[in-house]
Amino acid sequence: MKAIVQDTYGPPEALRLEEIAPPEPGSGEVLIQVQAASVDPGVWHLTTGQPYLIRALGFGLRAPKARVRGMDVAGRVEAVGPDVTRFQPGDEVYGTCDGSFAEYACAKQDRLARKPGNTGFEEAAVVPVSGCTALQALRDVGRLRSGQSVLVIGAGGGVGTFAVQLAKHLGAAHVTGVCSGATADLIRSLGADEVIDYTLQDPTDGARRYDLILDIAGNRSLSGLRQALGPRGTLVLVGGEDGGKWFGGTGRLLRALLLSPFTGQRLRGFFSTQNHDDLRLLAELIEAGSMTPVIDRVFPLAEVPEVVGYLRSGDARGKIAVRV
């Protein structure tokens, strides 16, 4: 099968298209004939091996343990391994796996759900990582309640476009999205009550306070974010792209966790997981018209190295899909 492989950490050019043997499903796994995948910041981090902390977390100290990149996946079940009860060959599924930038990939059944019936494979493939991140950040960590005000910093990105829609679905009374002026109309169309162009206005200047703030892959200071947070509000740090090659955004996260017990504000960070129940819920919301995946561009599998570079440029609106 064709697959995007990587033997050394490095720039996106370290990724290359090769012919390799297809995987075989183990216990609790299904073999998927991949139709589409997508790219998120995690792909860039695993490609470059930065911040270096991720290498110590089990991904490989000197070289990647897994040769094939890609997490988000959508496709058809080709075969099932022992103890698989949820799916059978021919089912159209979506979710996450290790190595979705390939014609075939194995995934645990607990990290899959049936693909939304009203979307194509490309639309489904952009949902799992970013959709679950937005859902869990709002519902589980942010504890969003009906009638609250929400500020989404980074509303134009993959997680942000889902977060704006999910915040309204979960009952937020007022959702403010922070993005570039070029993305403002898109964010309004997704349900934002207000849009702030960060090039013209600082959303953390203290002019307004919010019950819940999602700072998505941002590098704003904790003091600035707290200034825009209500006295009993919750700040959720969803990733972070600042802090250097060694620790990335984890330094800011640790400072938030250490400070939180000494203030009335809840300062939180988290790492999302993908599971069957949340994927099934997201599929139901898409089928009901309550949530729409936003795709910036679709690339063929062979152009994944260029895709990773394009994502890093910050020019993408919503998600980037990969057609396999």
Rank of each mutant, 00 (worst) to 15 (best):
D296I: 12
T183Y: 07
P293E: 14
H174N: 06
E24N: 00
G289C: 05
V164L: 15
Q165H: 09
I20S: 05
G10Y: 06
E103P: 05
A217I: 08
D277M: 11
R16L: 05
F270I: 01
D202I: 06
A155Q: 06
T47D: 07
A102G: 10
A182V: 03
R312P: 00
S100N: 13
A182K: 12
E29A: 13
L31D: 05
P305F: 00
I320Y: 04
S221H: 01
S180F: 08
G248M: 07
V141S: 05
E194M: 14
K108D: 09
I20D: 02
L282T: 14
G120K: 10
P41R: 01
E306A: 14
G318N: 04
R317N: 01
R69G: 07
F59V: 10
V178Q: 09
G171K: 02
L170G: 01
V127S: 03
H45S: 09
V84P: 03
N219G: 15
A102E: 11
T47P: 13
V238A: 01
T161S: 08
Q136S: 14
M1S: 15
G154I: 06
E103M: 05
I4F: 03
G42I: 11
R323V: 01
T204R: 13
R226Q: 15
A14P: 04
L253G: 13
Q33A: 15
R67C: 11
K245M: 11
L166K: 05
G264M: 04
L17T: 02
D40C: 03
L281C: 07
N275L: 00
A302R: 15
A105Y: 12
E18Q: 14
D211L: 12
A125V: 10
Q50A: 12
D202V: 08
R114L: 11
D211C: 12
E241F: 13
G181I: 01
V34K: 00
F271P: 01
V159E: 13
G156P: 09
F262L: 10
G181V: 00
G240V: 09
V43M: 12
C106G: 06
G243D: 07
Y9T: 08
D215L: 09
Q109C: 03
V126R: 02
G28M: 05
L53E: 00
L200T: 12
D140V: 03
V307W: 03
L253M: 14
D277Q: 15
R266T: 08
T234V: 08
L257F: 07
A37G: 10
A107P: 07
Q165P: 09
L235N: 08
S27K: 15
G120C: 09
V175S: 07
D197Y: 07
Q136K: 15
